[in-house]
């Protein structure tokens, strides 16, 4: 297999929530969450270092759909804060911490490896920094979020994790 500096690593344990909310509720949520939720669709926002205390991620993946991702230990606290702040608002907050597993694909061949299974255009003009979207990777659905030119965060359903890892390993053979 060709040598490549591109690495696929597993995310640390995380708490994840799906929030469905209108713009007004979104602002309220952002205030207690400690990170403004993105206003534009297919945008990700983050602060802190993943898995470390205080880290926050907010991805807007649908017109009213957000994924909120925090360190596992802070999940219950964040949930309680949001429940309180959003009481009385028309919205939905669901815990999906264990539904998914996360990866980071980073290195010079990251986009090429993604292109082995994902039909999206990973050119920076088409898929700029901060963009996050659901798509397909070969036979599974996945979520891909560009943190930097060569750094992508990926989430797949828990049972699809091994398949995704194996397909990326297979695609490495094509880095010739």
């Amino acid at each position: 297999m060709p040598d490549s500096a591109t690495m696929l690593t597993n995310a640390p344990p995380l708490a994840r929530f799906v929030l469905r909310a209108d713009a007004e509720t979104t602002i309220k949520a952002g205030a207690v969450y400690g990170l403004d939720l993105p206003l534009t669709i297919n945008q990700g926002a983050s602060k802190g270092e993943r898995g470390k205390p205080g880290a926050r991620v907010a991805l807007k993946l649908g017109p009213d759909e957000f994924w909120l991702i925090v360190p596992e230990a802070e999940g219950a606290g964040v949930r309680a804060l949001l429940d309180t702040a959003l009481a009385g608002c028309v919205c939905a907050l669901v815990d999906v911490s264990h539904r998914q597993v996360g990866f980071v694909l980073s290195g010079p061949d990251a986009a090429t490896l993604l292109s082995s299974g994902c039909p999206l255009d990973f050119d920076l003009r088409a898929f700029p920094l901060g963009m996050a979207t659901r798509s397909v990777f070969d036979k599974i659905e996945f979520m891909v979020w560009r943190m930097a030119q060569d750094v992508f965060r990926i989430e797949v359903a828990r049972s699809f994790g091994p398949y995704f890892e194996a397909m990326i390993a297979e695609a490495r053979h094509d880095l010739v």
Binding site: A92, V96, R99, R158
Partner: peptide, 12 residues
Amino acid sequence: LRAWQTSITEQF
């Protein structure tokens, strides 16, 4: 209708 569904098949 003000209702939203979330798949939790793999959450549990």
